[in-house]
Write a protein that binds this DNA or RNA. Structure first.
Lengths: 239, 239
DNA sequence: GCAAAAGTGTTACTACTACACCCATGG
DNA sequence: CCATGGGTGTAGTAGTAACACTTTTGC
């Protein structure tokens, strides 16, 4: 098993697949591209592409993210490796091993084709069904991971613009988790966690057109949330 | 980026690397193999090998686990995908992308060469330094992941034999985390979590030669631990 | 008896839950 | 004025931390 022979095994292709999430109109959206060729021609799929010989999977994912979203600067965006999908039959043509990533975007630029001709579109998560390859599963895994990470990390700010209200931050949780949170308790929890958010002095903004203007905050420097912000136990869990 | 051409890119080799943990004498140990050839000849490395054309990375990892440990049945052992390492220069000879896994073994069978000739040895985690390739980093990542998963899953029972005492289970936490836990509180926490452990009626065992015989338990059916069993905040964390 | 490990009890405190309530703004 | 969303207060409770204490074994 230790003999490295470049030709001892059938070559593998290595790709990256991206689950790019954003929140639009109170619903979780994911970026999909329409496939132009077989297999799965005409079907929607997660954006992605080959890892080039001179780059890591992380570099490839960030490059693809820029190409697909059309954003000029993707260096600050949160990009997280999920896991690698390697079942032998997952691509009918050849052996393709895919490293999956999740990305979180604050504001949704209208999707466009990017550098290649493929059509790209923001799709509500619940409508993203019957994707090409095993992308249904990758997408579901990505959402699970993002939801879990909201509990014990400060990841939620990655969905928000540089300045945001606590109501917008709470909407991130409610949208990803699909549950309502108690507003006063959420506020206290966030403010009691040092480094989660920092206030923008004096700034305020109206959110829904009505109501009291809300104070603005920026993302803090902390990365983990301790103690965690546990989602309400839906029912299936013990305790 | 969507043109699948098997020869458009330099071929990648795909391997698995395994961080196999066990607990021996109150210390966390990891299984290492000695490399017989360049590069890194004579250095210690994590066990692993190529993914074959007809198997997934998970299958390859379980196959390698059986070969390296000499265990006849590895089907029930906990095996968890960590992440994939794909930096271009991580193997000096060719482009190797490696999917890393962590495995947890209850009792430590004396290591032996396994099916191939390489020497294998259980090494205390703290002595596993200067490994081949980027295995230092993989090993550190594996330990971090296992430590984190002890907090919110029932994974700790994977380190224990089929019947174990609560003292042994507590030692798992203390060994992996490197901190002491309050014995009475740990006991209550574990027993208060439905499905974590189930009592073996009437059974008892002496643990340290002295002391009161401890009741025996088996691993339960629950997988997640809710609420989590948080490790004592070392200092670096907020709150 | 003494040391060691298992097991039980108790108190104080943290953190969260579920509300009621007030404030500021647009219509 | 009312509806809407932001912000504050507070009592009850679940869960944890930090002990003291008893029990059962080997030496």
């Amino acid at each position: 098993m230790d003999g490295y022979d470049k030709y001892a095994f059938e070559p593998f292709a290595v790709t990256v697949d991206l689950a790019v999430f954003t929140i639009r109109g109170g619903a979780l959206h994911v970026l999909l591209v329409e496939r132009g060729q077989e297999p799965y021609a005409g079907r929607w799929a997660l954006p992605g592409g080959f890892v080039r010989p001179d780059e890591s999977a992380e570099s490839a994912a960030r490059r693809e993210l820029g190409e697909e979203t059309g954003l000029t600067d993707v260096s600050g965006l949160h990009l997280e490796q999920l896991r690698t999908y390697s079942e032998p039959g997952r691509d009918p043509r050849m052996r393709v091993v895919s490293v999956a990533f999740a990305a979180l975007l604050p504001h949704a630029p209208e999707a466009h084709g990017g550098s290649d001709a493929a059509q790209a579109r923001w799709t509500p998560y619940d409508c993203a069904r019957e994707l090409a390859f095993d992308h249904d599963r990758i997408l579901a895994d990505a959402r699970d991971r993002v939801g879990a990470k909201l509990e014990y990390t400060c990841l939620a700010t990655a969905f928000c613009p540089s300045e945001f209200t606590l109501g917008e931050l709470r909407q991130v949780y409610e949208t990803v988790w699909g549950t309502a949170l108690d507003r006063p308790n959420f506020r206290r929890k966030v403010l009691a966690t040092p480094g989660f958010v920092e206030a923008v002095p004096g700034a305020a903004r109206l959110t829904g057109g009505r109501g009291k203007p809300a104070a603005l905050y920026r993302a803090g420097t902390a990365a983990i949330l301790h103690p965690p912000l546990l989602r309400p136990t839906p029912e299936g869990r013990p305790a």
